[in-house]
Simulated scan of single mutants.
Amino acid sequence: MKTLSNSILSIRQNVPLFVSIAALVLYSSCSSSTPGAGAPPPQELPVIAVESKPVTTYSEYTASLEGNRDIEIRPQVDGYLEAIYVDEGAQVHKGQTLFKIDARPFREQLNTAKAMLLSAQASLETASINVSKLTPLVENNVVSDVQLRSAKAAYNAAKANVAQAQAQVESAKINLNYTNVTAPADGYVGSIPFKTGSLVGKVQTEPLTVLSENKAVHAYFTMSEVDFINFKEHYAGNTIEDKIKHLPEVELLLADNNIYPQKGKVELAKGQFDKTNGTISFRATFANNNGLLRSGNTGKIRIPSVTSNSLLVPQEATFELQDKVFVYALTDSNKVVGTPLTVTGTSGHFYLVSKGLKAGDKIVYKGIDRLRDGVQIKPQVLPADSVLKTAAL
């Protein structure tokens, strides 16, 4: 207990010494930092000069794809579906058998028609014999010519019966052939709602399937009234048909954002606007030799437009404030100033700018999140071509 009291007494006696040492250290620290204190050096940031270049921009319109012919496959005779030779989505060729309808009733109809033809031919032969027999008798005045005329009339009737029987035979053959339902063109089989054993017929509302002929594919898209007015003003020609002819080849952007390798051509514009949504329809046609496109696909039509000179500003060099696009422009004193831009469109990863900058102006390319108006930087000027290539990737 006595030892603890002595320790406390010793600490109390040395408190002034501890305070003096702490104050000396603090003063020394402040004294050593104050003489060398000053503003930090300006940060080094990449800077590019804005350039004016010819640019191709694209107007995009949502499109739905259809084969150049979607053919409904319907039965031409009534009967039970005996066999289905194709599967949904299969590629088929013209003349290939798709379905088989029970042919037995139609085969018997053909046999009956052939028998009736034989009977009619026999009657015709009999009538011909009667005419041949009566002709010399009439010439020799043995019998009256009334009998000969009656015989000739019977012959003509028999001849007509033969022709009718022949037609029935041909009709029976046609119906028998209809039991084999074949593809009228090359294409792809759609959905098949019927199964083997289903009763099908000519009056049914639903087709056996729909065959899409896809050697060429139509992409249907619509323009708003404003877009249509711009289209009429932009392209040469006195009529809409003439203006369509002056349209460049268009691209098809697929659902996976890949560009279809072959370009298409706009061929048709609908004659009037749709009253419900205020749009007018167009159609572009694309070759589809490899069968990559199918009816029912969706995508976007991209119509190119070439602008002779546009200021290109990389989007990553911009920031948005209150729905406006800004860049940090560099002044002669290497200070940055937030500058609003008037953006007229986009091309890849670039903004097309009409106001706010001019060709040759320098802007900060990267690191803009660390800046504010009036901050001085140390510019690291980058070649414009390298920036264009990098931003385009």
Score class of each variant (00 low, 15 high):
A160Q: 11
G278Y: 04
K159S: 14
S191V: 13
Y260M: 02
K243L: 01
S64K: 10
M223P: 09
L352P: 06
K324E: 13
V143D: 07
K133Q: 15
T344P: 07
Q376A: 15
E82W: 08
T339E: 06
D102V: 07
L393G: 13
I101V: 00
I192L: 00
Q380G: 10
S7T: 13
N257G: 12
A120I: 05
G67I: 03
T196N: 10
T346M: 06
K366L: 05
T331N: 06
K173Q: 13
P16K: 02
E225N: 09
K366Y: 01
T56H: 03
S386V: 07
K159G: 15
A185Q: 05
V217H: 02
A63R: 02
L321Q: 15
S386T: 09
E44G: 11
L134K: 03
L371K: 01
V343T: 03
L199T: 14
S150H: 10
S33W: 10
F106C: 04
T342S: 11
A157Q: 13
L137M: 10
A384C: 04
A165M: 04
N156C: 09
K195T: 15
Q380I: 06
L45I: 01
S386P: 08
G197C: 05
L321R: 14
E125N: 13
K358P: 07
G291P: 04
Y85I: 14
R107Y: 14
V203F: 10
Q76G: 13
A120T: 01
T209N: 03
Q91D: 11
M116N: 15
S354I: 04
Q121M: 12
L253I: 06
A157R: 08
A317E: 00
V169I: 06
K263N: 12
G360Q: 05
A172I: 02
E241F: 08
Y328E: 03
P54C: 05
P35H: 10
K335C: 08
L330E: 01
L311P: 00
A90K: 09
V337M: 08
L382F: 05
E213W: 06
A39C: 15
S295I: 02
H218Q: 13
R149P: 09
V226M: 05
P75C: 00
V203Q: 09
T298D: 10
A63S: 08
L65I: 05
S64A: 10
I377Q: 02
T318N: 05
N334E: 08
K133N: 15
T318D: 05
N175V: 00
R104Y: 09
L393K: 11
E108W: 10
K263V: 05
T279N: 01
V189I: 10
V266E: 00
G299I: 07
F273Q: 03
I8T: 12
V313E: 05
K265T: 13
N258T: 15
E267P: 11
F326L: 02
S150Y: 10
L393V: 09
S308V: 14
K202I: 15
V387F: 02
P105V: 01
I71M: 05
